[in-house]
């Protein structure tokens, strides 16, 4: 890339709208996966904030809906791969809760792409980064949530 091109790319990037994403993660797998991304210095999009709970089974519809209510542009629910739950079936319970949440979100008129469920293991640092990048891109494409009060459209 020529210097001018780099500059232009940077400029383009700085005017890009940045979403506000909430990530719910379980302590044993997905949160640990994010740590692994850190240890391996795998760079990824910074526009998310992580909330740690012990098990994805703890992630109830209320948490996700409240995030959207407050203006989250995207919510990612994550846990251990099926069969790998630290608490045996917590993640399968999480899946049931997630389906319920998804139905509510759909009824409320938010795009389905703003809500996502991913299983990420402690070793999958690269995958964590990939999921974050993909999801950020996906949410960015959707634009700010209608419920995002600052509606930082640029």
């Amino acid at each position: 890339m020529t210097p001018t091109k780099t500059k232009r790319a940077k400029k383009a990037k700085s005017t890009q709208w940045n979403p506000n994403i909430v990530v719910f993660a379980c302590n044993w797998c997905s949160y640990a996966g994010a740590d692994t991304a850190g240890v391996s210095r795998i760079q990824h999009e910074p526009h998310f904030r992580m909330i740690r709970v012990m098990c994805s089974g703890r992630i109830q519809p209320g948490f996700v809906l409240k995030s959207f209510e407050k203006g989250a542009d995207g919510v990612l629910v994550s846990g251990c791969h099926i069969g790998d739950c630290h608490y045996i079936f917590g993640n399968e319970r999480a899946l049931e809760q997630f389906d319920k949440t998804k139905n509510m979100v759909r009824l409320l008129g938010l795009e389905e792409g703003r809500l996502r469920l991913e299983w990420i293991s402690a070793a999958e640092g690269a995958r964590f980064a990939e999921v974050i990048n993909e999801f950020t891109a996906q949410v960015r494409k959707l634009g700010p949530s209608p419920l995002n009060s600052d509606n930082r459209k640029r």
């Binding site: 109830q60 519809p61 209320g62 409240k66 009824l107 008129g109």
Partner: peptide, 22 residues
């Protein structure tokens, strides 16, 4: 709130409006 406040969140989201409900 029972149900972790999910239903209250739902109502407040509707109060904010701005979405096209299904």
């Amino acid at each position: 709130c029972p149900h972790g406040g999910a239903l209250q969140s739902m109502m407040r989201m509707m109060a904010k409006g701005k979405t096209k409900q299904e």
